[in-house]
Design a protein around this nucleic acid. Structure first.
Lengths: 224, 224
DNA sequence: ACAGGGGGAAAGACCGGTCTGTCTTCCCCC
DNA sequence: GGGGGAAGACAGACCGGTCTTTCCCCCTGT
């Protein structure tokens, strides 16, 4: 099962499309059971929780609004009061995914596992290795949405933006490690990340190890 | 524009799901204009031609049967006489894509460009570089379908099979080059291919060059 | 050689289901 | 009593798939 813990209420990120409904969450707490609790913000949290679960597992096109509202025990009117359209919910989901998956699950975890910036970079593929082994492994939502909707669609564009953010994290680590041409480094590194994710989707359980090996050579090549 | 030249009528490949309708094409020739020509096989060829165009550009889920039959100037009953379902047409499309794109456009072209097996391997990314520059670049249909339908769906499974075939071509070249552990080599190589395709979809025009550089290190590492 | 018949194909109505999105009704709770 | 939420009907479009009607081409029988 995936975290499904509390998630901070948007907090208006500087960059990236922010389609989160303008709702001020005073105390972030989520009811995962369909118990008919009171209060207003609960609805948004429940919808977001269900959307995260379904969208990340099955993609955004396969999950309809009717299923979303049914699974979150919310009325359709309530859904459309908080989200003007399904696409805006998808946008909010992508933002959530960036916080919960990219930052918390991958980058922070990799930084925690390694001591030096170089170790932290390589630890990304250790985290990937664990992630690939999960039985509920569901690939990268940004790649999924990008390929599902195409790079011209707003949702595809948003996915490209969030993928660029991932590259930004890698570039930051590369700069901390004092590597040469960190932007180029991050682009090459990102090829390894995305390629290993696709290979893992095909069923290659050792894709992370293979990518990590090539990542090591890439680091060597960018040492000054 | 894509080839859209004549394509040999199925010829019943040994491996892979063959959902091509059981039709014996005497002389393969395709009429691309919606001129009301005679004969029966024309219908299948027209449907396949339109399906190749639309599926490869927009994915299989975004293209409906109604649009397919309208664009190919064929009656709905005719479509369903030759293809029992939309999925079977998608299967036929994937088989066509393997012949036309994987084999003819990528592998054969790479073998033509390089002299030694090693050069031919690296030439794959030269071909990719040209491919990424096309304004109608539409990513890899096998990856698209795999992510669109999921690895459990029959179409996803078929895509995995065709991706394995691509890896087989790489492995064959690795064996010709006398590299160590060619199967492992091909899996790592494939990570670079797939990762660069995603990066190109994001807009990185130099993704092929980056992948080629890492591919060179991979070859070095597998030299005996 | 010509009439007749059979079958494939075109056109499109139709079916049940799903999609996103709107609107109404009722009810509960502050 | 008023507002928000639950429930759900509804609209309009589209989905994959079936079936009917009409037509025309070609094959066959005499």
């Amino acid at each position: 099962m995936y975290p499904e813990e509390e998630f901070p209420p948007a907090s208006a990120t500087d960059h990236a499309p922010s389609a989160m409904p303008s709702v001020v969450t005073p105390s972030p707490m989520v009811a995962e059971a369909p118990a008919p609790e009171t209060s207003a913000v609960k609805s948004v949290a429940r919808i977001m929780s269900v959307a995260y679960e379904l969208f990340s597992r099955r993609g955004v096109r396969d999950v309809g609004v009717n299923e979303l509202i049914e699974r979150s025990g919310v009325a359709k009117a309530t859904f459309y009061r908080h989200f003007p359209s399904k696409d805006s919910l998808v946008l909010a989901f992508l933002e959530q995914r960036d916080k919960q998956w990219t930052v918390d699950a991958i980058v922070s975890e990799a930084r925690r596992r390694g001591e030096t910036p170089t170790e932290q970079l390589l630890a990304i593929f250790d985290v990937f290795g664990d992630w690939f082994l999960r039985e509920d492994f569901e690939a990268c939502s940004f790649i999924n949405v990008l390929l599902e909707m195409g790079p011209a669609h707003p949702l595809g564009q948003a996915s490209i933006d969030y993928l660029a953010r991932i590259r930004g994290h890698v570039q930051a680590l590369a700069e901390e490690a004092g590597l040469r041409r960190p932007e180029e480094f991050a682009r090459s590194w990102h090829i390894l990340m995305k390629g290993s994710i696709i290979s893992a989707t095909e069923g290659d359980m050792h894709a992370a190890k293979r990518a990590q090996q090539m990542a090591g050579w890439l680091i060597e090549h960018h040492r000054n």
